[in-house]
Design a protein around this nucleic acid. Structure first.
Lengths: 160, 160
DNA sequence: ATACCACCTGGAAATTATTACCATTAAGTT
DNA sequence: AACTTAATGGTAATAATTTCCAGGTGGTAT
């Protein structure tokens, strides 16, 4: 397991290229949001959460800017939109090769377990290639019951 | 490829068991929504679309009932919630074994290509088992560029 | 059957996430 | 420095989903 250290400038460069290509501007707000989003953990962050974090650094930030900036990150392939069914859209940094992780979501208690599986990724790419499709990233979510919820379930006779 | 014909009563039984177990009631509205949702195609149906369809059979149906019923289907593992990022939650019948399909979503033109891959499903289950997780269903979405969008892309120098 | 209780329904109001709008400010270019 | 264009913040507008409630209905015990 080689620890691929990615200098943070790599993501920054992707953004800068995108901005240049589209004649968009680089602003203080975008820098701060970028930093907060990519350089501080916070898995599956909510727009609201990010807003609160950015606000500490830059109190007069507006909600709209967070929305717009996340959409921007998404457009240039740096961020990823997820939706676990609670009405809030969540974002997370797109993982570069070897960093990608997927989710197991417990429908009993809502717990989210992260995992990563090379074989699944390999076959995903394979299927895509057969369809002339170029995969940028993917989203795999397994829904079911986690260990402790399976215990609880044993009382009721429930078979799908 | 054995065509697994599932009598529609199989899904109905799942629902009935669930209702009984939870002391919920079986109603005319639920029957009609069930029928419309499971026995007529309509991939990735929207709440609004389903509402319109049901309304034809049962004009005084209310929006809330559609929402509630879809949530019910979801709870008993019969329906599946998807979100492709346009602000509308979509539902589709959960596929039974061998019927499941996944999605390739083109970020260029929005086209959705469906596919199915046994190996991916196999390894998904495998990963789950290792984590003590019982998989009810899963969601796999590959985001990228479809064939024709890859062509168009060749003009601009765009690398992720 | 009847009565009863719990659940369901429709309609509309309330809530909440997200987007649109606009006047002002700031980037980047000439 | 002047100018052009895009970005920002605040807020209003929009749209999806949830909640509320009064009245209706299903299922069970009697």
């Amino acid at each position: 397991m080689i620890p691929k250290v990615r200098p943070k400038s790599e993501r920054k460069k992707v953004l800068e290229l995108y901005l240049a290509k589209k004649h968009l501007k680089s602003t203080k707000q975008r820098d701060i949001i970028f930093d907060e989003f990519f350089n501080h953990p916070g898995q599956h962050i909510t727009v609201e959460e990010l807003y609160e974090k950015v606000k500490k650094q830059y109190p007069k930030i507006g909600y709209a800017t967070i929305y717009r900036t996340l959409k921007l990150f998404k457009e240039c392939g740096l961020a990823f939109e997820r939706n676990f069914g609670d009405g809030k859209t969540r974002y997370e940094p797109v993982k570069f090769e070897g960093e990608h992780h997927d989710h197991m979501i417990c429908v009993g208690c809502g717990r989210i377990i992260e995992f990563e599986n090379q074989r699944i990724e390999y076959y995903s790419r394979e299927v895509a290639r057969l369809n002339g499709f170029e995969v940028l990233n993917h989203k795999l979510e397994l829904y079911g019951y986690c260990g402790s919820c399976r215990e609880k379930k044993k009382e009721g006779a429930n078979n799908l």
